[in-house]
Structures are given as C-alpha cells and as structure tokens.
Amino acid sequence: MEAIISFIEQNIEIIYLLTFAIFLGFEVISKIPTVLHTPLMSGSNAISGVVLIGAILLIRVTEPTNYFALILATVGIVLGTINLVGGFAVTGRMLEMFNKKKKK
C-alpha cells in the first residue's frame, strides 16, 4: 500500500500523462480497416522498439568498469534496435506492397 502511495506522490505528473496517453491511444486508432490490421500491428510493434532509448540512457550512466552491466545493456541496445529498425523496415515493405496495387 505504502509503495502505491509513494509511487503516486513521486509520479503525479507521469500519472496524468499516462492517463491522457491511454485515451489518446484509443482515440487515434479507433476504426481500423481489416487491410491495415497487420501493418498497424507491425508498425506499432516497431514503435515498442522505443525501449532502445531507455537502454541508451542507462548504458550512459553505467560504470565503464562494470562489464557485466555493459554487456547486458549492449545486448539490450542490439535487441531494441532490431525491434525498431526491423519493425519499421518490414512495415514499410508491406505498405509498399499495398500501394503498388492501388496505382494499377
């Protein structure tokens, strides 16, 4: 219980942001046509590669001699980048495929 209260105290600004962002998310993606289900999914999947930013911020404050932490963080960066770059590239490829067809 205390943990929850202290979380709210520390992060009131974030809680506001979180709540608005949830509503925003629902609003932005209200009606999706079936054709876009897969691109939207893989596109949003790419956006979750935003964790890369977290990995970068953390490795920047890690002790340069703490190799264990450095390696873990580097692996985190590699994986985050794969998610981010691969996700956007694959979505782009898919959407190109849809567009090509429409021009015909």
């Binding site: 974030i14 942001l17 979180l18 962002a21 949830i22 925003l24 998310g25 629902f26 932005v28 993606i29 209200s30 999706i32 289900h37 939207l40 999914m41 949003s44 999947n45 956006i47 979750s48 935003v50 964790v51 930013i53 977290g54 911020l57 953390l58």
Partner: peptide
C-alpha cells in the same frame, strides 16, 4: 528512465494492441 517519449510511445502501442 524518466523519458516521456518512451512513455507515450509505449502507451500508444499498448492501447492500440488492446483495441486490436
């Protein structure tokens, strides 16, 4: 990591995933 862009991006993905 106190990064608002991550927070926003994550929540957007989370809610779009829930809608789907």
């Amino acid at each position: 990591t106190d990064n608002k862009l991550m927070l926003l991006g994550g929540v957007l993905v989370g809610s779009s995933g829930i809608i789907l």
